[in-house]
Design a binder for these strands. Structure first.
Lengths: 133, 133
DNA sequence: ATATTTGCTTTCACATTGAAAGTAAATATA
DNA sequence: TATATTTACTTTCAATGTGAAAGCAAATAT
């Protein structure tokens, strides 16, 4: 990883240099929820990422070693993406964004997400452990 | 706030629709660390935000009611920016990004930030309470 | 043998950004 | 009281990043 992508020696600033965009953490979200994903799975998630951007972000995350890409056991055309520990360690930040979004944007959040967020609020550590395992 | 800025009914996606860029959370960071800030204070922080972008982001955060802008008590040219509760509630996500950055980008993080992050790791709830008060 | 699926890449108009310069009002200084 | 400086912006614009659509090649299904 090139050092000159970092604006300062501040850890938030540096984390945002890597994850401060609208797509990267959504890819991590999908993997936290589902464990493994294929290109098609990501592509079909409801936010409608373009294939160009998805491809680019997967490469970035792979380069960061936040996820791994492996062959599908039977289908040679399909690849399986999985989080590494480095990727899983983004779970706390992600659930805090869920909590914030659920509190302040509640009127347009789906019922399913509201339930998930309510559970999170009660059992942060348990949900975290579950997501990161 | 316009509803059509949101890509989906997912709370992470929606939070990222608001904060998924390289500058917005850094402004919140400065306010968490310092309590109050002026335009000049933000402008002089080490990441070198351009005044055009700073002005734009401050307006966005004010529009979201994540911060307030008030007159300086004696200098009519200066404005004082402060976090609202909505803004302070971003503190958990921000400290988790500090923790992640400190763990995985440690080699280029300043000693001061390393100390802060170490304390955070030991005393998450106490530091959080202190930042949000 | 042919159609479909999957995981991309390519293209390009459009949106966002960073850097620099400009501005106007308020304040400090001579 | 005149002038320099400071503060909080706005304007401009080239460079960069993005979304939507189309294209492609290998693998799989029919």
């Amino acid at each position: 990883m090139d050092e000159n992508i970092f604006r300062s020696t501040c850890p938030i600033s540096s984390s945002l240099d890597l994850f401060g965009d609208k797509w990267t953490l959504l890819i991590v979200r999908d993997l936290l929820y589902h464990g493994t994903r294929t290109f098609k799975d990501f592509y079909q998630s409801e936010e409608n990422i373009s294939s160009a951007r998805l491809s680019e972000r997967l490469k970035k995350l792979e380069g960061l070693q936040a996820l791994t890409k492996e062959n599908h056991p039977t289908n040679k055309k399909v690849y399986i993406y999985k989080l590494t520990q480095k990727g899983k360690d983004l779970a706390p930040a992600i659930i805090d964004l869920i909590t914030w979004g659920n509190k302040y944007l509640n009127h347009h959040i789906s019922d399913e997400s509201k339930k998930f967020a309510a559970n999170l609020k009660e059992n942060r550590e348990i949900v975290l452990k579950e997501l990161m395992k």
